[in-house]
Design a protein around this nucleic acid. Structure first.
Lengths: 129, 129
DNA sequence: TCCATCTACAACCATTTGGTTATACGTTAC
DNA sequence: GTAACGTATAACCAAATGGTTGTAGATGGA
């Protein structure tokens, strides 16, 4: 449980990350705020929905760590965190490692048992890929 | 509209992709089914929830194209599609391109206008922040 | 000071999501 | 053939999501 604490939080963070990315409006906000720093109202003008709705989308992105808000006077400037997509990518890498793991194990089989393979497909066959 | 048709579907697909990844149980299913092909009931044994719940998770993964089901006798074997994570990665790349674009444009500014920039904000003015 | 602007937040609503149980159907084993 | 197994699907429920409107608090400019 104690050890799980950190892992659980990491997984919850991954949940929030992908969840935040799973919406077209939010992905578009990310694109816009990657190019420029935009205030929330400026952003809101771009979408066919209320200011409050856009504000909520920004909040979701912020909780996911994809975006950072910086106050300037009465407006709040939004910019996407360049490091954030790296985290997303790392999450994918971690998933991919699972079946890279499978490949490794297959290599292990081939490496550790250089002879006596009766059940794997014959080398005589023109091998697939 | 006609042109949008394909883009819309692509974006909807991206929604489903990230949505499917935004759940710990589903990510775990992906890991397990990357290593081995597992039947749905076999999978269900691994989680503290009903068979039907796991079945729904698999359905979400399938709709997102992250997983493929193959019938063998009375059981349905699930395996993750190796190509799927590539699609997720490509979606991230497309997002990242947005601020790679920003960097390019900044380089462009520096490269194309080595002098005579009158309309960008003056370094001399203590600007209004 | 007064007003317009930008933001925050609450209350509400419809739909989706993640779970449950129950039931029905096809397949395998005995 | 019958029983056990694996799957599919429906009906239901609570909570989360994506949207709305309304109200109130700061801030900046006239």
């Amino acid at each position: 449980m104690v050890v799980d604490g950190v892992a659980e939080e990491a997984e919850a963070g991954t949940d929030r990350l992908f969840q935040a990315l799973a919406d077209l409006t939010r992905r578009d906000i990310l694109r816009r705020c990657a190019r420029d720093e935009l205030s929330v109202s400026r952003l809101a003008e771009a979408y066919p929905m209320s200011f409050a709705a856009v504000q909520k989308h920004v909040a979701v992105l912020e909780r996911a760590g994809l975006v950072v808000k910086e106050r300037r006077g009465r407006e709040q400037l939004v910019r996407t965190d360049p490091e954030a997509l790296d985290r997303a990518r790392r999450a994918l890498d971690e998933l991919e490692a699972a079946w890279r793991g499978r490949v490794e194990r297959m290599s292990d089989l081939l490496a550790e048992a250089p002879e006596a393979e009766s059940e794997t497909r014959q080398p005589t066959e023109g091998q697939s890929r």
